[in-house]
Design a protein around this nucleic acid. Structure first.
Lengths: 201, 201
DNA sequence: AAATTTATTAAACAGTGTTCAATAAAAAAA
DNA sequence: TTTTTTTATTGAACACTGTTTAATAAATTT
């Protein structure tokens, strides 16, 4: 039985090696510019063998997709230490923004690159968990008198939209020229403007 | 001279034929799923000949990109008939949202598909014009007492982010499942929530 | 030691964007 | 009108792409 176990471990290791190579190239060059042959040659492997470990290119992509969401979600949950719900709400947006800044490539992979439509399976579940987390914090705010008369779901969607809008404009690098400031500053000031508007108890 | 003129016209016609074919396929299948061979065969043309009229696939894409922006900008300018500046501001957001709904494929092409970084040349100029238009309307609002104490540029960026966030989440079809409502309703309610927040004179 | 499972590979298939020499068609010059 | 030159078109070729598969090597089980 220990032989089977070692086998399994070796298989996991190869799985990881491929994923490491894929992560490097995917985050560097994006989806289309990453080829199975690139991933394979990076680890001196044959392209065909990749298919022994992954169904196809998309499955590798979704593995990284999930990785990104797990990373984001863990950072979102870290703000639970903040007691004041509105402060927690504010921090949650900053987590998003900082994530887009520090992990621009993941952000692209998670929100911008992947094809329209359903992000299936586990990846979708984690994304949903992230939304529910935001919704929960907003609910806490509302219990304490913030956002009076506003629907929780729509507020959640709107918050998500505003922050995602900020991040995706940043990641796609649209708007340099009109907004001569560097993107990082613009994001923060844009977010502060948003918070200034929403901050009425 | 009339021969040269007819020649030029014929060239323009071929240019248009290719663009028409490209538009159809690009808007239907997106960037990557559109091939030069597809575009050519659609009009019983040889793939190589495309390169007599366009530098490469990207140049065709950017032509459509510009088309989309011209269309959006014309609809943005149509709200100038509204006298009240805040009403005009509100309508501007709705123009965006309706554009994303009615021309989802263009929206994808314009904001989501194209590669990170500079959208060069004329296309960039039109995008800039659109931003300046929004900024101008916000300026009018501020002259009449809205958005007190808020920086025009940041407010412009934030508005753009919020609306673009709504539209891009819609276009990428993220969030079905958590927000069980159809995307169109969600967009409108999300936008109304945004307006409810920002509406303080 | 033989049979069987597991892992790896190179080759092949059908597709991609793009280039280019050959060629046909049209216009200009002789 | 004939020759030359320009303009437009084509198919073949190049170097890629994701993926499948038959052959093969290696490791494990019988």
């Amino acid at each position: 039985m220990s032989i089977a176990k070692r086998k399994e471990q070796e298989k996991l290791e190869m799985h990881k090696r491929i994923l490491d190579s894929a992560r490097k190239i995917f985050l560097e060059k994006g989806y289309e510019q990453t080829s199975i042959r690139n991933i394979a040659s990076e680890i001196n492997y044959s392209p065909g063998s990749i298919y022994f470990y992954f169904k196809d290119k998309n499955e590798i992509f979704h593995e990284l997709h999930k990785e990104g969401f797990r990373l984001l979600l863990s950072q979102m949950k870290a703000v639970n230490t903040i007691e004041n719900p509105f402060e927690r709400y504010k921090a949650l947006g900053l987590v998003f923004i900082r994530f887009a800044q520090n992990h621009t490539d993941y952000y692209n992979l998670m929100f911008l690159v992947s094809e329209t439509g359903k992000v299936q399976g586990e990846g979708f579940q984690i994304a949903q968990e992230a939304i529910e987390h935001l919704s929960g914090v907003i609910h806490l705010c509302q219990e304490q008198g913030w956002f009076k008369g506003l629907n929780n779901k729509y507020l959640t969607f709107m918050t998500l939209s505003a922050v995602h809008g900020i991040c995706s404009l940043y990641c796609k690098d649209r708007m340099a020229g009109f907004f001569e400031k560097p993107g990082e500053e613009l994001m923060i000031h844009g977010y502060e403007t948003f918070i200034a508007l929403i901050d009425k108890k």
